[in-house]
Design a protein around this nucleic acid. Structure first.
Lengths: 195, 195
DNA sequence: ATAGGATGTAAGTATGTACTTACTTGCTAA
DNA sequence: TTAGCAAGTAAGTACATACTTACATCCTAT
């Protein structure tokens, strides 16, 4: 069960197939996600899978195009206390990444290998979330809370990037690095705040 | 041809097999890296592959355990001008990541999926490089150049993490974010330097 | 010259996988 | 009660893959 997989499919059979297809794609890759196992994990027969989707690629492609990361939009609006706002944002993203770490790290590269699975370009959900974070920093700059000698996008990378790196290092090499969110906010902020 | 794949194998047939095995593992995943294609790309017959390695897993496992990232060790010693030292370090790591980005992003998750390929734990090369970067920051703290309210490891993550994240975002979603190394050093340093 | 070692070619085995066809079962709506 | 729809079971097809066996060829060192 992954937070990122918010699939929105009323038919329970199709929903189960989409979900298990996505899980297996992340766990075992495109070739490793066999139709037999997708069906088994969804609790239906393999024949039923092929009655609902004309082939494996169609099923997985549909599942991927329905992913959307549920980040609370309110967090992208600065409320005044910058340090508190940043910490809340960082905690939300960190929690989401932590909860979905296996999923994120394994699924994304599989999508790189199989562009035919997302022909409409980068999944809309991710691009949107990223843009929202950029908007947050831009607003902080306009309000004079942050200096403007770095682009908002660069700030997103500098602020959130370490979390992504940590997920990778932990997932791949088992390197569980201590990382204190408050200290990161402090270091980030002291190097960028105005006045 | 990847910088990260510094395989050190004198026998040319074995070297070619290790290299093409590693490339295909990154490009197509474990299942997608077929012995037929590994042999073809190495310029030998499939039978020769099995004469040198008892099976596919042994070949790929050996290839993985020989990877070592060639980072110049001298860069991990602070020379005095902290801003210049950090920039040099960041540029070296950034260049290495950029040059190998497809490789890094695709190979690492494949290793997560197949722990049997690196049974001895995290590949020595990576762990060593990471520890060296931690040592750099620790020395800076001892010399009084950086504050000590963050651990050296946390500093590594905050400093290098954004580069890793950028490689991921660019490779997976095609999001080419501008990222100015000098500005990152400045922001990082201003939030952490002493005095 | 020749023996040994590394390689190639041809063929084959066993298995797994995507996908199909034919027939049966059970639930639901008229 | 019954027609129809969604699902299951059983079996099979066609193909790819990991790995093997048997035999021929070439190059090199003695």
């Amino acid at each position: 069960m992954y937070l990122l997989a918010n699939l929105d499919e009323p038919d329970p059979t199709r929903a189960a197939l989409l979900r298990s297809g996505l899980e297996l794609l992340a766990e075992r890759g495109y070739k490793g996600a066999t139709t037999r196992e997708i069906a088994r994990r969804a609790g239906v027969s393999e024949v039923t899978l092929f009655r609902h989707y004309k082939n494996k690629q169609t099923l997985l492609s549909e599942a991927i195009n329905r992913i959307s990361p549920p980040v609370n939009q309110a967090l992208f609006v600065p409320k005044g206390n910058l340090e508190a706002d940043l910490l809340a944002l960082l905690e939300a993203i960190s929690g989401l990444l932590e909860f979905n770490k296996g999923f994120v790290v394994r699924l994304l590269p599989e999508l790189m290998r199989h562009p035919e699975l997302h022909p409409e370009g980068p999944a809309a959900g991710f691009a949107h979330t990223f843009a929202a974070a950029g908007g947050f920093f831009q607003r902080c700059q306009q309000m004079g809370l942050l200096r403007s000698d770095e682009s908002p996008q660069q700030m997103v990378v500098a602020f959130v990037g370490p979390l992504v790196a940590r997920v990778l290092l932990s997932g791949v090499w088992g390197l569980e690095l201590p990382f204190d969110l408050k200290a990161h906010v402090r270091g980030f902020l002291e190097g960028r705040k105005n006045g």
